[in-house]
Design a protein around this nucleic acid. Sequence first.
DNA 1: TATTGTTATACTCTATAACTATA
DNA 2: TATAGTTATAGAGTATAACAATA
Lengths: 166, 166
Amino acid sequence: MYGTVNGVPAPVTAPIGVVLARTAKTAGRAFDQALAAAGGSQPIWQILISLKTRPAANQRELADAVGIQGATLTHHLNGMETAGLVTRRRDPGNRRVHLVELTDHGEKLFHRLAEAAIAHDQRMRKGLTETEIAQLAGLLHRLAANVTDTTHERDRTHPNSDAQEG
Amino acid sequence: MYGTVNGVPAPVTAPIGVVLARTAKTAGRAFDQALAAAGGSQPIWQILISLKTRPAANQRELADAVGIQGATLTHHLNGMETAGLVTRRRDPGNRRVHLVELTDHGEKLFHRLAEAAIAHDQRMRKGLTETEIAQLAGLLHRLAANVTDTTHERDRTHPNSDAQEG
DNA sequence: TATTGTTATACTCTATAACTATA
DNA sequence: TATAGTTATAGAGTATAACAATA
């Protein structure tokens, strides 16, 4: 299908990016439905996971953990606070920092979403062995690492280019 | 982390859905940037692939192939037509049907995006063998099949009926 | 001035419902 | 009536830029 394009050698197998994107779209939509049925959404689920498992020093770290911008996190936290899932209060030690904490309602939602996520997982894993799942996770991790890796990007280690502020 | 939740047995490995979602998000964003730099986007790329490789009888089939609703496809086709990538004309044999055809500009964009997609793929595949990629594609395909499978939806009265695999 | 977070605004993708054109 | 597609509208998620509060 992509034998060669302008002389660029094509992958021997189908583009893994296409397979990944399609699979993620399909699986993501099914997951959306499962989470929605349990009263949540993917960003809420990611935020709850982070709150439960990571000691984020501030919202910036929380946003990074979830993979969104700070303003986007604020957007979700506003909704979650309105829904009674979290509270925000200023850190007495550094009043710039807003401490985000789960309410009981938030805890309960976390557990409901965890159940939904586990059920979704079990459905997806059906017919696959533990070994295959571990292989898959490992391979996905390596793909992500290749894409996260920044060594290919324009070299930003030279201060000459942009560090000449007045 | 998910040892047990309300007695539901947890997966032994980390939830593959989480790994998949995170990987897809990371890879998808990198892909977005690559396509944007080449003048495209993921939906445009999917539509172009379908137009080039599938003989869609009508827009409904095209939308299905891309995985979106008809109205959503219309939205993208409007933009693509404005951008001079495709033309739409009525099928003389059945004037309800609108034939979508690539313009030269559309063909060129397809090739540019194909190059970008291949480059993106090669970057992601770095360090992985052909065998591993083939494994990964196969495993993803099986995950998607599990999620696409609708047999679980009709009869939810026997929760244990699918506990055994053949 | 720098850091932390919020507000204002806008963009992309997607969907459903109502509509037009054709059969 | 049924089919193919479009238009109108809306909602979710995301982002950037400007802002306020705090240090």
